[in-house]
Nucleic acid binder design. Structure first.
Lengths: 336, 336
DNA sequence: TTGCGAAATGACAACGTTGTCATTTCGTTA
DNA sequence: TAACGAAATGACAACGTTGTCATTTCGCAA
């Protein structure tokens, strides 16, 4: 009884005040049409006067559901904001709230641990936001009574997954280069352990190989501009380098700055494409062409997938949300 | 009974399986030391076998508390990520989960409406993240039984508030300019309706006036680089402009690019300071000095304030989290 | 007015836990 | 061995809602 001062107003209190039965108060809330108008008004007045608010715990206990979806943040990065935004909007629209927990700072959370903790909380289903590998990914089995959707580029044997089509995005960028007459594409990766980076690299590699091109050694970055700059210095010395795909916009910008400092022009000497389309926020008159993923849409899809699976938690699906190539002028057409 | 397939394992089931009373199972969970080891093991085994997980609703109903703190996102911006991260970490540490709701897209949510919705959800207290003005800010009264903390630069008559010290940060930047021999400081604002922008402007104005300097007309921006660029073009023509404070780093970068394009050098001709210290992520070898706020810390403080107030929801406090000036080389010392 | 079906309302149990208090079992000492 | 206090366990009520089913009230036709 920690948080309750003296008394909390219950339906019974309202019923007494309004001179009706407890059940009638319940009806006023859940099926107002089945209550005579005069009665309803009296109950409403009593609720207003007493400041009644329905007790979530009692209601959920009876109903056997919570109206909440759990979100586990294994990793909270910049791109996650829009995704959470999407999840939250979709939840809002369907009358759900979100229950959130996070991986502890140093801790190494497994899917099983996340599921165990979530299943003690008020949730009808859950979404895992997983951008890095975890130990028990392949062996994990979701609780049978709790629909589980994992946001991750990897396929899971038993759970539904939702993901940006990172590989497809990378392929799209490569095709774009090739269609503009480039004969090869260099790649600057993000942090090694990032699944996004791995997938983007995989797509890049696949696209080149599909055209019989041997992919050059990728350059290792860490998402930040300085690592892109370092990569750019290296690339500037490669005579066959006319096209660079960087795993995000920040590194792409670093690459461009390095090329410029080495006396090369973008796009005249070297063409560049990035990911995430966010450079324009920071750089005036940005020319960078970039692959943009629809993170909000990703969140919405993940949420819808959970809700769709509430009745059949063991169903399984795989959703890919395609990216979009935002075209600016950082790619030169060599066919001219 | 929607989500429950056939049966959910209850404490009673475990008790029967283990050959003990229901209450003993409860004790194994809540006060394990009061149960003989042999009994405890038997119960644990039964729980394991049956896959028992405690029912949140029933537990909360009895205890009269949820172990959840509500978070209302009136506005979900980039800076909010770190703050949410801070809130989530602090929650994690104290064994709380978060319950989140969001303002609907088009909707204009008031504090009262947010409180009403939250009070129907499983929460012991709540945090409002409010970066813009709402209609009922001054008249709002929090529910007496639900500790409410508002993250906002404005003071509230009855609720506890937590905020970055935006004014202080702006003052700090101005003092820094003045201490380096500058005689005046120009200001580029963010979006008009943003409270952050308003506070930063207020601090800038106050700092100048405190030194008997008449603040020049501020330039209106919109947070993005292009608006900073436009402002920079204007400022480049002002002979008395040696120092520019931009309300964020993106606009600061825009200003710097414009100055450069006009043949002026930063910092030799004009000095610049930004806010948020995030330019280094996008620009290699960034020289921009910037005021950085500790958003994680902000979240942690807000959470702690809620928890501290759980026993006395009507208590009230005001917390300011100071900013830090991250010094690089975009400010020239004119005293030399 | 009476009778009747439909609408409105009420009494009571149940959801799965924990608190209270009673009862049983244990270990120790006389 | 008996007696006793402490430790372990159990029976039962209660938290505040909703579902089920019974009861009352209403509106309308005969």
């Amino acid at each position: 009884m920690a948080t309750m001062d003296k008394k909390n107003v219950s339906m019974n209190d309202v019923a007494v005040a309004a001179g009706v039965s407890l059940k009638t108060v319940s009806r006023v809330i859940n099926e107002p049409d089945s209550v005579r108008e005069s009665t309803r008004d009296g109950v409403h007045a009593a609720m207003e006067t007493l400041g009644f608010r329905a007790n979530f715990a009692a209601r959920s206990l009876k109903l056997g559901r919570y109206g909440c979806i759990g979100v586990v943040l294994f990793h909270l990065s910049g791109g996650a904001v829009d995704m959470i935004d999407g999840i939250a909007d979709a939840a809002e629209e369907r009358g759900f709230a979100l229950t959130m927990i996070k991986k502890r700072a140093g801790e190494k959370m497994t899917l099983a641990e996340a599921a165990r903790r979530m299943s003690q909380l008020p949730v009808d289903g859950m979404i895992f936001n997983l951008r890095q590998m975890v130990d028990d990914f392949d062996t994990f089995e979701a609780p049978k009574d709790l629909k589980t959707v994992i946001i991750t580029p990897m396929e899971h044997p038993t759970c539904s997954t939702v993901s940006d089509d990172q590989e497809g995005g990378a392929r799209m960028a490569c095709e774009y280069f090739l269609n503009h007459g480039h004969k090869n594409v260099y790649f600057v990766s993000g942090k090694k352990e990032s699944l996004s980076s791995q997938c983007r690299m995989k797509g890049w590699r696949a696209a080149l190989e599909a055209h019989g091109i041997e992919p050059p050694e990728p350059l290792q970055g860490d998402w930040n501009a300085d690592s892109g700059y370092a990569a750019g210095l290296v690339l500037a010395d490669k005579p066959d380098c006319t096209a660079v795909l960087a795993a995000n916009d920040c590194m792409a910008n670093g690459v461009m700055m390095a090329l410029r400092d080495k006396g090369l022009s973008v796009p005249n000497d070297v063409s560049v494409i990035g990911f995430d389309d966010e450079l324009y926020k920071t750089i005036p008159n940005s020319i960078l062409t970039s692959v943009k993923f629809r993170h909000r849409e990703l969140g919405v899809r993940a949420f819808n997938e959970v809700v769709a699976g509430l009745e059949a938690p063991s169903s399984r699906s795989r959703t890919l949300v395609s990216g979009v190539l935002v075209e600016r002028s950082s790619v030169k057409d060599l066919r001219a």
